[in-house]
Structures are given as C-alpha cells and as structure tokens.
C-alpha cells in the first residue's frame, strides 16, 4: 500500500491543519479563495482515495453544486442588477446567482475536505488527541466504533443459530419473518448489555480510571512536525492578516464589491494557495525523493 506523506505526521499537525482549512473554506467567500480551496481539496481527495474520489466528486458533488447554485436566486431577491422577473413577480438578480454559486462551491469544498479528514484522522488519532482532555467521552467514541462491527458479527452468529431451529429471517411467511427478525434483534440487545457489563468489569480489574494512562498508538513530535507546524502557523497568520485587511472578503449584496488587487493581496493569495495544497505538495516531495533514491540503486 502506498503511504500518504501527510498522514504520517503527528496527529496535532493533522488536526490543526484540518481545523484551519475547514474554517477558512467556510468563511472566505472570495471567488479566488474558493477556487484555491476547492482545488486543494479535490487534489488531496484524489491522492487519498484514487478513482473512488473522482467518481464521488463527479457523480455526487457536481450535481449538488448545480442544484444548490440554482436554489439561491429563486428564493433570494436581494441585489441591484435585475436580470428578469420570475412568474410570481419577484426579481431574479445577478448578485443572488453569484452568491448561490459561491455558497454551493463552499458547501462542496467543505464536504470534500471532510472526506479527506475521515481518511487522515483515524479513530486512534482522535483518541490520542482527546484522550487527555476528555478521557471518558473519547473512550465512549472509541468503544462505539469498535462495537458496530462487533455487533454485526454477533448478529450473524445469532441468526445462524436461529436458522438451525427454523427461526431465521429467511424462514416462514412474512409475519413470521418479521417476528423472527425482531427476536434476533432482541437477543442481540440482551447479549450486548450483558457483554457490556463484562467489559466494564474487566476494564476495572485492569485498572481503568487510574491516572497516567497510555494510548494504543505512540506518536512522537519530531523535528519535521515542529517545522511543518511553524510553517502552517506562519501561513495562517498571513491569511488572517489578509482577512483583517479585508483582502479576502467580498460583498455580494446589494452589489458585488471586492477589494482592488495590490501587491499584498497577491502575497495573501500565495500563502493561501500554499496552505491549501500543503498535503499534495508533501506527497509530491516524497515521490520525488523516492524516485531519486530508487534511481540511485
């Protein structure tokens, strides 16, 4: 399996990155910023998920984008440039079309970033991150994630046992089948509860609740994590300065107004571009390194 460069970083680096990239994608409605973030998200999702991501983006995200972009101008009539009037007499404005496209673009970008988040921040990373601040709640989350596949397995065990006495979902008429199904679920629930108490007692016997617990995966905060985190914070600082100076804000209503381009605005755009494509760039650097090492053998 191909390793992804960005997933090998320390969980804090991953988490800080996703927090900022998601907040920025939701906050900045400036078309250039949206395009940069969308490009970064799609690029990274294709790197992570390959052909599946291409299919997902084209089959679900593109239609969603179109439908949502059309929704806004139908219900939102603000804006000064009236293109025509709808049959019910309300104006159809250019500003609301543009806003609709921007909002739809934002929505899709966030979903694509979340698909990357799911792949990178695995449950053991979540446990590592929140185990110290919220030990009980992160334990509940981790146990639930384990229970779901476990119950699925137990369900098949129960239904095989029931089939041998003629009481499976596939036996009898419709009413009997429904009754059998409910009985299997009832058995599963009782088993799950009893099993839970056993798990809890076992946890207690092994010292759950004592201070200084350790986590399953051990992550070390290395030099490269330090370096990456400081680069990220530097880029975030530039982007936030830009935001404070309104380089990346845009006003849609009543008329579209953007700030004039200046030298500084290009610095902000550049910083945002580097920030959004950071995971993709790490991957490219790793590939180049790998090719270089292989070529020397």
């Amino acid at each position: 399996m191909r390793r992804n460069a960005f997933t090998t970083f320390h969980p804090i680096v991953n988490f800080v990155y996703f927090t900022f990239v998601l907040v920025f994608s939701m906050a900045f409605m400036h078309p250039l910023f949206q395009a940069i973030s969308l490009a970064g998200a799609i690029g990274y999702s294709i790197l992570l998920n390959g052909r599946k991501a291409v299919k997902f983006n084209l089959l679900y995200m593109l239609p969603l984008l179109l439908v949502m972009a059309a929704f806004n101008p139908i219900f939102n009539h603000a804006g000064v440039t009236i293109l025509f009037y709808l049959p019910n007499g309300n104006p159809f404005t250019r500003e609301s079309i543009l806003y609709g496209i921007a909002a739809a673009c934002m929505y899709v970008t966030v979903i694509v970033w979340f698909s990357c988040f799911n792949k990178v921040i695995t449950s053991d990373k979540l446990m590592y991150l929140f185990g110290k601040i919220m030990p009980a709640i992160s334990l509940i989350l981790a146990m639930t994630l384990r229970f779901v596949p476990r119950y699925r397995h137990q369900l098949s065990v129960i239904s095989q046992a029931q089939r041998s006495i003629g009481r499976d979902l596939s036996q009898g008429n419709l009413i009997e089948r429904a009754r059998n199904g409910l009985r299997i679920l009832s058995i599963l629930t009782t088993w799950a509860m009893e099993n839970a108490i056993e798990t809890a007692d076992s946890m207690k016997a092994r010292g759950y609740g004592l201070p200084k617990r350790t986590s399953f995966s051990i992550y070390r905060f290395e030099r490269r994590d330090q370096l990456t985190l400081s680069i990220m914070i530097g880029l975030v600082a530039i982007v936030l300065t830009g935001a404070a100076l309104e380089e990346n804000t845009i006003r849609y209503f009543p008329s579209v107004v953007m700030k004039e381009y200046s030298l500084f605005s290009f610095v902000v755009y550049g910083a945002y571009f580097i920030f959004c494509t950071l995971p993709v760039m790490f991957q490219i650097v790793e590939e180049v390194k790998w090719k270089y090492i292989v070529s020397k053998i």
Binding site: A136, I137, M143, F147, Y151, A200, M203, Y208, G209
Partner: peptide
Amino acid sequence: FEKRKPQARELVVIAVMTAI
C-alpha cells in the same frame, strides 16, 4: 461529565446504546 469521573459500567452502557 468528565469532572464526575464516570464509572466504567456507566461508560460502557452509554457506548452500547450509541452503537445500537
């Protein structure tokens, strides 16, 4: 919830209900 230091049994039953 964290301050109360919930017992293992309570945690596991909550996790079971969530999983169901």
